[in-house]
Structures are given as C-alpha cells and as structure tokens.
Amino acid sequence: MFELDLRSRAPMYEQLVEKIKEMIINNVLKPDQQLPAVRVLASELTINPNTIQKAYRELEHRGYIYSVPGKGSFVKPAVPGNNTARLRILENGLAKIISEMLYLGVPPQEIITRLKKLLSKKEGGKLDD
C-alpha cells in the first residue's frame, strides 16, 4: 500500500498513523473505504501486527476511522474532533518555517500572500481579508 521509513526515529505506529491520516486528508482513501486487514499490512510492510493494531486503534480514537466487528476498519466520512496536542506541534513547525523565511529575507507581506494562495488552492474559493 505504501512504504514506511524504517530509518526514521519516530515510533513505527506513529508513522503509520500519520501516513494513513495524510491519505485520508488528501482523499486518497475515500470515506467508508476499507483499510487493509492488519495481517495483510503486517505482511506487506514486514512490521509487527501489534503495531498495526495499535495504529488502527489510535486512528479510531482520533476519529479518522471506524471498525466493524468481523469485517475490518473503514475511513470515517466526518472530520475528527479534539486535536489540540497535534495542533500545537503544527503551530511550532509553522513558527519555525516562518522564522526561517524571514531570516532569508522574505518580507512579511510576501509570506501572507503566499499563505493566502495556498489556502485558496486548498479551499477552492476566496478568502476574506
């Protein structure tokens, strides 16, 4: 299905969670689409099935997927709920990127323009000023 970076220091199940999340956010995995069975994915990626189980549980806990007993796990159509911890990490990352851009001489107004462009591409519409 996809490749994981075995050299990365982050725990395997976190990588899995992030990868599957990314695919759900970008609509590569569609709502109500079934995720591969734990044993199939374990075999494909050569990683511990308990790790995959954990990742699926985490995704369910965060509201990205739901499971049907006896059938498997599926992508949840709705948007997930509480994500404050993750948002804080993302904001920290954003702060780093912006400070580097400023350091490299990109004027603040330029950064805002680029941000607006990115947002409109993602939203497919216009933004209020």
Binding site: R39, S43, T46, P49
Partner: peptide, 14 residues
C-alpha cells in the same frame, strides 16, 4: 533477513 522476518510476522499475524 527480510524473508525470515516476513515469515515470522506472517505466522504471528495469521
């Protein structure tokens, strides 16, 4: 190594 790991994991999973 990869083959053996894979066989072990398959038995664990199955």
């Amino acid at each position: 190594r990869k083959k053996v790991k894979n066989l072990i994991i398959q038995d664990v999973a199955e």
